[in-house]
Design a protein around this nucleic acid. Structure first.
Lengths: 143, 143
DNA sequence: TATTATGTAACTGCTTCCGATACAGTTCCT
DNA sequence: AGGAACTGTATCGGAAGCAGTTACATAATA
Protein backbone atom coordinates (compact mmCIF):
# COMPACT_ATOMS: atom_id res chain seq x y z
CA UNK A 1 0.00 0.00 0.00
CA UNK A 2 1.20 3.45 -0.67
CA UNK A 3 0.31 6.99 -1.53
CA UNK A 4 -3.16 7.38 -2.94
CA UNK A 5 -5.69 10.02 -3.76
CA UNK A 6 -8.63 7.81 -2.91
CA UNK A 7 -9.52 9.54 0.36
CA UNK A 8 -9.57 13.09 -1.02
CA UNK A 9 -11.54 11.93 -4.04
CA UNK A 10 -14.02 10.11 -1.83
CA UNK A 11 -14.46 13.08 0.48
CA UNK A 12 -14.92 15.42 -2.43
CA UNK A 13 -17.46 13.15 -4.09
CA UNK A 14 -19.49 12.77 -0.90
CA UNK A 15 -19.48 16.51 -0.30
CA UNK A 16 -20.61 17.07 -3.86
CA UNK A 17 -23.45 14.58 -3.48
CA UNK A 18 -24.46 16.26 -0.23
CA UNK A 19 -24.47 19.68 -1.83
CA UNK A 20 -26.62 18.43 -4.68
CA UNK A 21 -28.90 16.75 -2.17
CA UNK A 22 -28.50 13.49 -3.98
CA UNK A 23 -30.20 11.33 -1.41
CA UNK A 24 -32.40 9.09 -3.52
CA UNK A 25 -32.14 7.17 -6.75
CA UNK A 26 -34.13 9.86 -8.56
CA UNK A 27 -31.41 12.35 -7.69
CA UNK A 28 -28.49 10.16 -8.67
CA UNK A 29 -25.34 11.90 -9.90
CA UNK A 30 -23.27 10.30 -12.65
CA UNK A 31 -19.59 9.57 -12.35
CA UNK A 32 -19.07 11.91 -15.28
CA UNK A 33 -20.53 14.84 -13.37
CA UNK A 34 -18.61 13.97 -10.21
CA UNK A 35 -15.40 13.64 -12.17
CA UNK A 36 -15.93 17.01 -13.80
CA UNK A 37 -15.92 18.71 -10.40
CA UNK A 38 -12.53 17.40 -9.30
CA UNK A 39 -11.53 17.34 -12.11
CA UNK A 40 -10.50 13.79 -12.86
CA UNK A 41 -11.50 10.78 -14.91
CA UNK A 42 -14.93 9.15 -14.48
CA UNK A 43 -13.29 5.75 -14.02
CA UNK A 44 -11.24 7.06 -11.13
CA UNK A 45 -14.47 8.24 -9.52
CA UNK A 46 -16.24 4.96 -10.12
CA UNK A 47 -13.39 3.04 -8.55
CA UNK A 48 -13.95 5.10 -5.40
CA UNK A 49 -17.74 5.17 -5.44
CA UNK A 50 -17.77 1.39 -5.81
CA UNK A 51 -15.82 1.16 -2.54
CA UNK A 52 -18.10 3.66 -0.82
CA UNK A 53 -21.08 1.62 -1.96
CA UNK A 54 -19.57 -1.59 -0.59
CA UNK A 55 -19.09 0.24 2.70
CA UNK A 56 -22.77 1.18 2.72
CA UNK A 57 -22.20 4.93 2.59
CA UNK A 58 -23.83 5.44 -0.80
CA UNK A 59 -25.90 3.53 -3.29
CA UNK A 60 -25.35 3.35 -7.01
CA UNK A 61 -27.34 2.21 -9.95
CA UNK A 62 -26.36 1.47 -13.51
CA UNK A 63 -28.32 2.44 -16.55
CA UNK A 64 -29.78 5.63 -17.91
CA UNK A 65 -30.48 8.17 -15.18
CA UNK A 66 -28.28 6.14 -12.87
CA UNK A 67 -25.35 7.20 -10.76
CA UNK A 68 -24.64 7.59 -7.07
CA UNK A 69 -26.55 9.02 -4.15
CA UNK A 70 -26.12 9.26 -0.42
CA UNK A 71 -27.59 6.53 1.70
CA UNK A 72 -27.12 8.48 4.95
CA UNK A 73 -27.56 12.03 6.14
CA UNK A 74 -24.40 14.07 5.43
CA UNK A 75 -24.15 14.82 9.13
CA UNK A 76 -24.05 11.10 9.84
CA UNK A 77 -21.16 10.30 7.51
CA UNK A 78 -17.98 10.59 9.51
CA UNK A 79 -14.68 10.86 7.70
CA UNK A 80 -13.06 7.98 9.55
CA UNK A 81 -15.66 5.72 7.96
CA UNK A 82 -14.75 7.22 4.60
CA UNK A 83 -11.08 6.56 5.20
CA UNK A 84 -11.77 2.95 6.14
CA UNK A 85 -14.05 2.54 3.13
CA UNK A 86 -11.20 3.36 0.78
CA UNK A 87 -8.61 1.27 2.65
CA UNK A 88 -6.86 4.36 3.93
CA UNK A 89 -4.33 4.60 6.69
CA UNK A 90 -1.70 7.12 7.69
CA UNK A 91 1.09 5.32 5.83
CA UNK A 92 3.89 6.04 8.24
CA UNK A 93 5.60 2.91 6.99
CA UNK A 94 5.97 -0.65 8.18
CA UNK A 95 8.32 -1.52 11.00
CA UNK A 96 11.30 -3.55 9.80
CA UNK A 97 11.23 -7.13 10.94
CA UNK A 98 14.20 -7.05 13.25
CA UNK A 99 17.19 -9.34 13.12
CA UNK A 100 16.74 -12.78 14.61
CA UNK A 101 19.05 -13.51 17.48
CA UNK A 102 19.46 -9.84 18.31
CA UNK A 103 17.48 -9.26 21.52
CA UNK A 104 17.10 -5.56 20.79
CA UNK A 105 16.32 -6.01 17.15
CA UNK A 106 13.61 -8.48 18.04
CA UNK A 107 11.79 -6.31 20.54
CA UNK A 108 12.00 -2.88 18.97
CA UNK A 109 9.80 -3.64 15.94
CA UNK A 110 6.80 -4.34 18.16
CA UNK A 111 7.22 -1.00 19.87
CA UNK A 112 7.66 0.82 16.56
CA UNK A 113 4.57 -0.88 15.21
CA UNK A 114 2.66 0.16 18.30
CA UNK A 115 3.73 3.78 17.83
CA UNK A 116 2.61 3.77 14.21
CA UNK A 117 -0.71 2.22 15.19
CA UNK A 118 -1.18 4.85 17.89
CA UNK A 119 -0.62 7.64 15.38
CA UNK A 120 -2.98 5.99 12.91
CA UNK A 121 -5.64 5.67 15.59
CA UNK A 122 -5.26 9.30 16.60
CA UNK A 123 -5.70 10.44 13.01
CA UNK A 124 -8.76 8.25 12.63
CA UNK A 125 -10.24 9.54 15.87
CA UNK A 126 -9.80 13.11 14.67
CA UNK A 127 -11.52 12.31 11.40
CA UNK A 128 -14.38 10.71 13.29
CA UNK A 129 -15.26 14.16 14.57
CA UNK A 130 -15.69 15.57 11.07
CA UNK A 131 -18.71 14.76 8.92
CA UNK A 132 -19.46 15.33 5.27
CA UNK A 133 -21.85 18.06 6.40
CA UNK A 134 -18.92 19.82 8.06
CA UNK A 135 -17.10 19.90 4.74
CA UNK A 136 -19.89 22.01 3.26
CA UNK A 137 -20.11 24.31 6.26
CA UNK A 138 -16.44 25.16 6.00
CA UNK A 139 -15.89 27.69 3.25
CA UNK A 140 -12.88 29.20 5.00
CA UNK A 141 -11.06 25.90 5.24
CA UNK A 142 -11.21 25.90 9.03
CA UNK A 143 -12.27 22.93 11.06
CA UNK B 1 6.04 12.28 -1.68
CA UNK B 2 4.81 8.81 -1.08
CA UNK B 3 5.13 5.67 0.95
CA UNK B 4 8.42 5.33 2.77
CA UNK B 5 10.12 3.24 5.39
CA UNK B 6 12.17 6.17 6.66
CA UNK B 7 10.20 6.70 9.84
CA UNK B 8 10.27 3.08 11.04
CA UNK B 9 13.95 2.82 10.19
CA UNK B 10 14.69 6.04 12.04
CA UNK B 11 12.71 4.97 15.10
CA UNK B 12 14.40 1.58 15.15
CA UNK B 13 17.85 3.10 14.80
CA UNK B 14 17.26 5.58 17.61
CA UNK B 15 15.92 2.86 19.88
CA UNK B 16 18.94 0.72 19.11
CA UNK B 17 21.30 3.58 19.90
CA UNK B 18 19.46 4.19 23.14
CA UNK B 19 19.65 0.55 24.12
CA UNK B 20 23.39 0.49 23.42
CA UNK B 21 23.74 3.69 25.40
CA UNK B 22 25.47 5.30 22.48
CA UNK B 23 25.49 8.82 23.84
CA UNK B 24 29.02 9.98 23.07
CA UNK B 25 31.46 9.73 20.19
CA UNK B 26 33.39 7.00 22.00
CA UNK B 27 30.28 4.85 21.91
CA UNK B 28 29.40 5.48 18.28
CA UNK B 29 27.57 2.71 16.42
CA UNK B 30 28.35 2.09 12.76
CA UNK B 31 25.72 2.03 10.05
CA UNK B 32 26.71 -1.56 9.40
CA UNK B 33 25.75 -2.62 12.92
CA UNK B 34 22.52 -0.61 12.81
CA UNK B 35 21.65 -2.09 9.44
CA UNK B 36 22.25 -5.60 10.72
CA UNK B 37 19.58 -5.16 13.38
CA UNK B 38 16.79 -4.23 10.96
CA UNK B 39 17.97 -5.92 8.78
CA UNK B 40 18.60 -3.66 5.83
CA UNK B 41 21.39 -2.08 3.85
CA UNK B 42 23.93 0.21 5.58
CA UNK B 43 23.35 2.86 2.93
CA UNK B 44 19.65 2.95 3.75
CA UNK B 45 20.57 3.52 7.37
CA UNK B 46 23.05 6.27 6.54
CA UNK B 47 20.47 8.06 4.43
CA UNK B 48 18.26 8.19 7.50
CA UNK B 49 20.94 8.93 10.09
CA UNK B 50 22.13 11.82 7.93
CA UNK B 51 18.66 13.33 8.20
CA UNK B 52 18.49 12.73 11.93
CA UNK B 53 21.86 14.43 12.30
CA UNK B 54 20.68 17.43 10.31
CA UNK B 55 17.70 17.63 12.64
CA UNK B 56 20.03 17.67 15.63
CA UNK B 57 18.79 14.42 17.13
CA UNK B 58 22.04 12.53 16.75
CA UNK B 59 25.64 13.21 15.88
CA UNK B 60 27.77 11.23 13.45
CA UNK B 61 31.43 11.01 12.70
CA UNK B 62 33.28 9.48 9.78
CA UNK B 63 36.44 7.47 10.04
CA UNK B 64 37.56 4.44 11.97
CA UNK B 65 35.59 3.96 15.16
CA UNK B 66 33.05 6.43 13.86
CA UNK B 67 29.31 6.07 13.53
CA UNK B 68 26.25 7.60 15.17
CA UNK B 69 25.34 8.41 18.74
CA UNK B 70 22.47 10.14 20.50
CA UNK B 71 22.79 13.84 21.14
CA UNK B 72 19.84 13.90 23.54
CA UNK B 73 18.48 11.78 26.32
CA UNK B 74 16.21 9.02 24.90
CA UNK B 75 13.40 10.38 27.05
CA UNK B 76 13.79 13.75 25.37
CA UNK B 77 13.49 12.51 21.80
CA UNK B 78 9.84 12.65 20.84
CA UNK B 79 8.62 10.72 17.84
CA UNK B 80 6.97 13.70 16.20
CA UNK B 81 10.42 15.24 15.93
CA UNK B 82 11.65 12.02 14.36
CA UNK B 83 8.81 12.07 11.83
CA UNK B 84 9.57 15.66 10.89
CA UNK B 85 13.28 14.87 10.66
CA UNK B 86 12.64 12.30 7.94
CA UNK B 87 10.09 14.45 6.05
CA UNK B 88 7.24 12.26 7.15
CA UNK B 89 3.55 13.01 7.06
CA UNK B 90 0.45 10.88 7.26
CA UNK B 91 -0.05 10.71 3.48
CA UNK B 92 -3.82 10.73 3.36
CA UNK B 93 -3.53 12.21 -0.11
CA UNK B 94 -3.78 15.64 -1.64
CA UNK B 95 -7.14 17.27 -2.21
CA UNK B 96 -7.98 17.54 -5.90
CA UNK B 97 -7.91 21.08 -7.21
CA UNK B 98 -11.61 21.50 -7.90
CA UNK B 99 -13.12 22.57 -11.16
CA UNK B 100 -13.07 26.27 -11.92
CA UNK B 101 -16.46 27.81 -12.38
CA UNK B 102 -18.10 25.16 -10.23
CA UNK B 103 -18.99 26.86 -6.94
CA UNK B 104 -19.05 23.56 -5.06
CA UNK B 105 -15.94 22.22 -6.72
CA UNK B 106 -14.09 25.35 -5.80
CA UNK B 107 -14.95 25.35 -2.11
CA UNK B 108 -14.80 21.67 -1.23
CA UNK B 109 -11.04 21.22 -1.75
CA UNK B 110 -10.24 23.70 1.01
CA UNK B 111 -12.44 21.80 3.43
CA UNK B 112 -10.92 18.46 2.40
CA UNK B 113 -7.45 19.87 2.79
CA UNK B 114 -8.39 21.13 6.24
CA UNK B 115 -9.64 17.68 7.24
CA UNK B 116 -6.42 16.05 6.06
CA UNK B 117 -4.37 18.61 7.94
CA UNK B 118 -6.42 18.02 11.07
CA UNK B 119 -5.77 14.29 10.88
CA UNK B 120 -2.09 14.84 10.25
CA UNK B 121 -1.86 17.15 13.23
CA UNK B 122 -3.63 14.65 15.46
CA UNK B 123 -1.21 11.90 14.44
CA UNK B 124 1.75 14.15 15.09
CA UNK B 125 0.37 15.18 18.45
CA UNK B 126 0.00 11.54 19.43
CA UNK B 127 3.59 10.81 18.41
CA UNK B 128 4.77 13.78 20.45
CA UNK B 129 3.69 11.87 23.55
CA UNK B 130 5.96 8.93 22.74
CA UNK B 131 9.70 9.10 23.23
CA UNK B 132 12.53 6.83 22.15
CA UNK B 133 12.80 5.76 25.78
CA UNK B 134 9.19 4.57 25.60
CA UNK B 135 10.08 2.31 22.69
CA UNK B 136 12.50 0.42 24.92
CA UNK B 137 10.10 0.22 27.85
CA UNK B 138 7.49 -1.43 25.70
CA UNK B 139 8.29 -5.11 25.24
CA UNK B 140 4.64 -6.04 24.95
CA UNK B 141 4.02 -3.67 22.11
CA UNK B 142 1.60 -1.59 24.15
CA UNK B 143 1.75 2.17 24.34
C1' DT C 1 -33.92 -0.98 -29.65
C1' DA C 2 -30.97 2.93 -28.77
C1' DT C 3 -29.11 5.38 -25.08
C1' DT C 4 -27.01 6.10 -20.78
C1' DA C 5 -24.77 4.46 -16.98
C1' DT C 6 -21.91 1.32 -13.62
C1' DG C 7 -18.12 -1.93 -12.52
C1' DT C 8 -14.00 -3.93 -13.74
C1' DA C 9 -10.09 -5.49 -16.54
C1' DA C 10 -6.05 -4.17 -19.00
C1' DC C 11 -2.59 -1.04 -20.61
C1' DT C 12 0.54 3.09 -20.52
C1' DG C 13 3.45 6.48 -18.48
C1' DC C 14 4.98 8.28 -14.44
C1' DT C 15 6.89 8.50 -9.87
C1' DT C 16 9.00 6.68 -5.84
C1' DC C 17 11.05 3.39 -3.26
C1' DC C 18 14.76 0.00 -1.54
C1' DG C 19 18.91 -2.07 -2.23
C1' DA C 20 23.45 -2.12 -4.24
C1' DT C 21 27.87 -0.42 -6.05
C1' DA C 22 31.10 3.19 -6.18
C1' DC C 23 33.81 6.82 -4.55
C1' DA C 24 35.65 11.09 -2.28
C1' DG C 25 36.59 12.76 2.19
C1' DT C 26 37.46 11.81 7.28
C1' DT C 27 39.40 9.59 11.29
C1' DC C 28 41.96 6.26 13.86
C1' DC C 29 45.75 2.95 14.45
C1' DT C 30 50.23 1.03 13.72
C1' DA D 1 53.21 7.68 6.30
C1' DG D 2 50.13 4.20 5.08
C1' DG D 3 46.30 1.25 5.71
C1' DA D 4 41.85 0.25 7.57
C1' DA D 5 37.28 1.72 8.95
C1' DC D 6 33.52 4.76 8.34
C1' DT D 7 30.30 8.55 6.60
C1' DG D 8 27.76 11.04 3.00
C1' DT D 9 26.22 11.14 -1.54
C1' DA D 10 25.74 10.03 -6.49
C1' DT D 11 23.96 6.73 -9.45
C1' DC D 12 21.72 2.75 -11.22
C1' DG D 13 18.41 -1.20 -11.58
C1' DG D 14 14.28 -3.59 -10.44
C1' DA D 15 9.84 -3.55 -8.20
C1' DA D 16 5.69 -1.46 -6.89
C1' DG D 17 1.87 1.64 -7.00
C1' DC D 18 -0.93 5.17 -8.92
C1' DA D 19 -3.71 8.23 -12.21
C1' DG D 20 -5.65 8.20 -16.31
C1' DT D 21 -7.37 5.98 -20.35
C1' DT D 22 -9.69 2.60 -23.46
C1' DA D 23 -12.59 -1.22 -23.74
C1' DC D 24 -16.36 -4.03 -22.70
C1' DA D 25 -20.01 -6.82 -20.27
C1' DT D 26 -24.04 -5.74 -17.68
C1' DA D 27 -28.02 -3.06 -16.32
C1' DA D 28 -31.75 0.34 -16.53
C1' DT D 29 -34.46 3.85 -18.96
C1' DA D 30 -37.21 5.74 -22.62
Amino acid sequence: MSDSQKFPVAAHALAYLAHKQANASERAISSTELAASMPTNPVVVRRVTAMLARAGLIDTRAGAGGGAWLKLDPGAIRLDAVLRAVDGCTHLGVAPAGAKGCPVGELIPDAVRAAITAADTAASERLSRITVADLLKTPSGKL
